[in-house]
Computed example of a mutant assay.
Amino acid sequence: MRIQKNKALPALVIALAAAGIWWASKPAPTKLTTPTAIPVRVVAVSEKDVPRYTSGIGSVLSLHSVVVRPQVDGILTKILVKEGQLVKAGDLLATIDDRSIRASLDQARAQLGESQAQLQVALVNLKRYKLLSVDDGVSKQTYDQQQALVNQLKATAQGNQASIDAAQVQLSYTQIRSPVTGRVGIRTVDEGNFLRMTDTTGLFTVTQIDPIAVEFSLPQQMLPTLQGLINDPQHAQVKAYIGADTDGETGNLLGEGHLTLIDNQINANTGTIRAKAEFDNASQKLWPGLLVTVKIQTALDKDALVVPPTVVQRGLDQHFAYRVNGDKVEAVQVQMVYQGSGQDIIKGVKAGDVLVTDGQSRLKPGSTVQVMSEPPQVVQAEPKP
């Protein structure tokens, strides 16, 4: 037993020596350095006047669209306009064969001349009978009969004049004139066709293009706002876009107009109310039947505090933003006044305050930050010829 204990002693010495060597060569613990700054992008709170908008989907409508139909039967002798041509109210569009109506007019004029000649003779005789009746040269009955003849001939002349007026009206219908200023549509008949008043298709349509209207629907909750806008002498501004979403920020602006009409009832099935706006359309970008997105300016916030939408963060029960103070950030409670598609109006900060707009996910109050500049713009090289 004494021999085994002596053999174990050298092994223990070797183990202790190895442990001492390891402890002596162990690297010293690294001391904690200052926290690494979190990169963020910031924006300064700006103060400006901001208009508020509401959006909806609408359809472009012509203020006047007329189907040109004949008012007398006859052969279409001439068409004086082309398809797609712009015409003014009163312009001659087409003519119908008028020979029969002119003959009726000449006949009515001849009958009027005959009646007027007979009336002239009757008046001379009436005057003579009146003088003779003073001395009982003619009987009272003869004088009364002559007076009745004069009245009859006057009525006949009036009837003849009415026939002339009617024939002249019929004659005017042989010249088809534009009732409105607008654009001629696709023609449905050609010269030489026999037209009837009972034809439903007509010759073509004339549709007013400038000015033009847009009819759209908004939620019924917007009724008080619309009523205030319609009574405003300044007229609420309405913008029409194509290819835009309901925010109206994307797509092409087709025109700017003003609110003109609110419908007299709310649609109980959809809970919406219809409204109409009128647009000047000299460039003819708005076309009847076109679906557009409309934006209506409902208010104007004076000296509003404006920030990009990415600044405001949503907490458990409130909104907040990170404000940069030196090289650190602090959480500031803010109130969301208005959310637009490209900017928000808030309260709780001051104009000029620097707020974090990107990188909030790594932040907490008191975090050290490093403000990054805007990313450089990518310049595309021109292709070599």
Rank of each mutant, 00 (worst) to 15 (best):
V169W: 06
L149Q: 07
A166E: 09
Q161A: 11
G185A: 08
P179D: 08
S139H: 02
Q161D: 03
P179I: 12
A148Q: 15
T174V: 12
S178G: 05
K140W: 05
A162E: 07
Y173V: 10
Q145N: 10
G185N: 09
K140L: 11
R183F: 02
Q152Y: 08
A148W: 11
Q141H: 08
A167F: 03
D165M: 13
V150Y: 00
Q161L: 08
G137Y: 02
A167P: 01
V169T: 14
A162T: 12
K140E: 13
A148T: 15
Y143P: 00
Q145E: 11
K140S: 12
G185I: 07
A167G: 09
Y173M: 10
A167Y: 02
S178N: 06
Y173I: 07
K140R: 13
P179R: 11
K140T: 15
Q158H: 04
T174M: 06
P179C: 09
Q152N: 11
S178D: 06
Q170K: 14
G159P: 00
V180I: 14
N160Q: 10
D144A: 13
Q147K: 15
Q168I: 15
G137R: 03
K140M: 09
T174G: 11
V150E: 02
G185P: 03
Q170M: 10
V180Y: 01
T181D: 04
Y143Q: 13
Q168W: 03
Q158R: 09
Q141P: 00
T181I: 11
L153N: 00
V180A: 03
V184E: 01
S178T: 08
T142K: 12
Q161T: 05
V169L: 14
Q158G: 05
A166V: 13
K140V: 11
I164W: 00
K140N: 10
D144M: 10
A157G: 09
R183K: 14
T156K: 15
T181H: 04
R183P: 00
V184F: 01
G137I: 08
Q161S: 09
P179V: 14
T142E: 14
G137P: 00
Q175H: 11
I176L: 13
S178R: 07
I164S: 02
A148E: 15
A162D: 10
D144K: 13
A157W: 01
A148R: 15
K154V: 07
Q175D: 09
T156M: 13
S139C: 02
T142R: 12
Q141R: 14
Q161N: 07
T174E: 06
G185M: 07
T174Q: 07
N151F: 04
P179A: 07
T142S: 10
A157Q: 01
Y143G: 04
Q168C: 05
Q175A: 15
S178V: 13
Q168H: 06
P179K: 06
L149N: 03
L171I: 08
I176D: 01
V180D: 02
T174H: 07
S178H: 05
Y173R: 09
L171K: 01
S172V: 12
Q168P: 03
T181A: 14
D165T: 14
R177S: 11
V180F: 01
L153Y: 04
K154T: 11
A157L: 03
Q175F: 03
Y173Q: 10
A155R: 03
K140D: 09
Q147R: 13
A157E: 01
Q175C: 06
D165K: 14
T156D: 13
I176V: 15
D165S: 14
Q170W: 04
A148V: 14
A167N: 05
T156V: 11
L153S: 00
A162C: 02
L171C: 05
T142I: 07
G159H: 04
Q175L: 10
